[in-house]
Computed example of a mutant assay.
Amino acid sequence: MVAILTDIAIHNPRTFSIYASILSRMFTWVRPQEREGLLENIQTKFESVPHAGQLELWLQRVAAPFGLNVTYSEPLCDAVVDPEFQLWNSNWVHVKHRTLLKASEYVDQGVFLALTPVVQSGEVQLFHYGS
């Protein structure tokens, strides 16, 4: 099932968020010792997909609550784990303003640490349709 979902996501980047949501639910069915290997296999499949940084952010969202330690190539993923991380070269900015560009200013660690293992529909649904 993971292979089929991954194939759909590879060919349809608009589905990355929904893919992550379904994947997170499926991870609850997988034995804990197999999750990290499965996630690494998924990352390997996406290496050939151009501009898959958004997917890596979603994979980090899936992996973190399960306690999986996976490395990501997307620089924004580093912002979550390193509060001193600076996304852009800001050496040209005055020293007193550089603190505004640190990851600790735009990443709320409290929210990140409180994430549930299963991605909720409210996180991936852009528009809420009334009935």
Rank of each mutant, 00 (worst) to 15 (best):
H94V: 10
T44C: 08
E123K: 08
P50F: 02
L68Q: 09
E123P: 00
E47S: 10
W92G: 03
S24E: 01
L113S: 12
A52W: 01
S73I: 05
R31D: 10
V107C: 07
Y72A: 06
L100K: 11
L87Y: 14
W58Y: 12
Q33G: 05
F66V: 04
V81R: 14
K102R: 15
L113K: 13
W29K: 14
L113W: 05
V62C: 07
E74F: 10
Y106W: 15
P50W: 02
E34F: 09
F66M: 01
K96E: 13
V119N: 06
T15M: 12
A64Q: 13
G53M: 10
V30M: 10
F46K: 08
A79P: 02
E36T: 10
L23R: 05
H51E: 14
P50Q: 06
S131R: 15
E105G: 04
I8R: 09
V119I: 15
D108A: 07
Q86I: 06
E56W: 00
P117E: 05
L100N: 13
S73K: 10
Q54G: 15
V80K: 08
L126R: 12
I22N: 03
I10C: 14
K102S: 05
V124G: 01
I42K: 00
N12V: 09
Q125E: 14
P117A: 01
L55I: 07
V30P: 00
L126A: 11
V80Y: 11
V80D: 07
V2S: 08
A20T: 04
Q109W: 06
K45T: 02
R98F: 04
A63W: 05
L23C: 04
V81S: 14
A3C: 09
S121A: 11
Y72K: 02
G53I: 03
S90H: 06
L23W: 06
R25T: 09
W29M: 13
V81E: 11
M26G: 03
S73M: 03
G122R: 09
A64K: 15
W29R: 15
K45W: 05
L126C: 04
N12E: 09
N69Q: 12
A103S: 15
D7A: 09
V93C: 06
Q54H: 14
G67E: 08
A3E: 15
R35H: 06
K45Y: 10
L23V: 03
E34R: 14
A64H: 14
L38G: 08
